[in-house]
Amino acid sequence: MTWIPFVLIAAVAVFFALYLVLSKNAVHGALSLVLVLVSLAIFFLLLGAEFIFIVQVAVYAGAIMVLFLFVMMLLNVGGAEGPLRENPSWQLAAAIVLGCVLLFEAALHIARAGEGVRHFPQAIAADFGSPERIGQLLFSSYLLPFEITSLVLLAAMIGAVVLALRRFP
């Protein structure tokens, strides 16, 4: 029975992902990307990772997509005028090649992982994916990556300011 919600959400995700790619209107595309991201968040929920679910909603749907919308309004690419310039044809070819590589890689991993991935593990801890478990792991085993994250955020902060406040001649 666990496959019914999965298939439903997957259908929603694929539909809006296609809409995102095919839509000529950038803001419509951004809106469908929000729905794709929310569907991905629900996948996490179905896997029992509730903290990641809410982080996905809060950070991707709630914060990053707002930036996307702002940038679209900033550059005024949102309207019906279409893209700023036509995509060069090599982009299409590169996209198809890279997409195939990605698909092949995913297939390879699923094939190599064997039974473990194809069948949902029967027993996971009751508190799997809870904020407590994530906190315990993050502040013991994964302490170094956590601290390095702050450096990444620092770099992003400085980069954003340098780019935004640059004086154009």
Partner: peptide, 10 residues
């Protein structure tokens, strides 16, 4: 506005 959104994400 872009700068505010960027800082907000961080």
């Amino acid at each position: 506005f872009y700068l505010v959104a960027m800082l907000f994400i961080l």
